[in-house]
Write a protein that binds this DNA or RNA. Structure first.
Lengths: 149, 149
DNA sequence: TTAATTCCTACTTTTAAGATAGGAATTCGG
DNA sequence: CCGAATTCCTATCTTAAAAGTAGGAATTAA
């Protein structure tokens, strides 16, 4: 499985915030309650989002989190890349640099680079707002033809 | 990391076979020796390829493995899907069926389905022969512009 | 001042990946 | 027929990563 709970929960939190934030901040216990997830575990996830600048936070009573920008300004790629660390399909292309000594002669490397790009291209083409609205614009055309049935 | 050693080693074995098989069969110890991999571990990987019909095998002395068809007739998708079990980015779309009770109301599901398709589309566009020849035809155009430099 | 919250560090548990081991079954060549 | 080389099968061990928990310090609003 390529996307762990960290990335999936992060997306859920972002969606929940978009739906439930008004002018103020939304507390983690509210989100955890609504989404039926462990608040303690969400703390870990949200901390990554917050440090990465995707969220704004307020400590203390009535504190909580809110989106740092508008839903249409987040790509899914930036959310998942941040929380997962990297979405690279294999170790050797993790940091952009090809950190493998056999890279020059590796027959499979171009394949992994191509796959990495295909993934990035797709995830960069979808915004948080697209997901929330169930919008279906991507390079593949409809991204969920099942939903039409 | 999305592709485990199983899938990566499987690819390496397929490439090695394409390069080294003549009329006869190639033994695992030969492949393991050339590729500097544990033969015992390769046994597990190759067993999947063999059961899946991607390889033909001959037991006993002078036995070994060979490709069941021509390199250009394998897509990378079929090799990786078989050895990895599934390349689905998340659990809930693993078997084509959406085996999650919240599927109907899940906002992120279409995203995962779309991602799954983007991956499948890319990996189906590349054949084993493409990888061996370093050929660069895919939906993304060149799949390794780095290689040109 | 108190209650609610984020924030930080560390730990535990669980699961999957990666790797190894031993031996049965098969096949070829002498 | 025999022995060496091999696939094939099942079971096990090891290691690393994911998933989840715990406790308490720092902060803030009412």
């Amino acid at each position: 499985m390529m996307v762990s709970t960290k990335g999936r929960y992060a997306l859920i939190v972002m969606i929940d915030l978009a739906a439930n934030q008004g002018e103020g901040y939304v507390s983690l216990s509210d989100i955890a309650g609504r989404q039926m997830l462990s608040m303690k575990y969400l703390e870990n996830v949200v901390s990554i989002l917050n440090k990465g600048g995707l969220l704004a936070s307020l400590r203390g009573k009535n504190g909580g989190y809110r989106l740092a920008k508008k839903p249409e300004e987040y790509t899914i790629n930036e959310i998942l890349n941040l929380t997962e660390g990297s979405l690279a399909p294999v170790e050797c292309i993790k940091n952009g640099d090809l950190n493998c000594d056999k890279a020059a002669s590796c027959m499979t490397l171009p394949l992994w680079v191509g796959l990495d790009r295909a993934i990035e291209k797709y995830l960069s083409s979808v915004t948080l707002d697209d997901v929330i609205c169930g919008r279906r614009k991507t390079m593949l055309g409809d991204w969920c033809t099942e939903c039409k049935e």
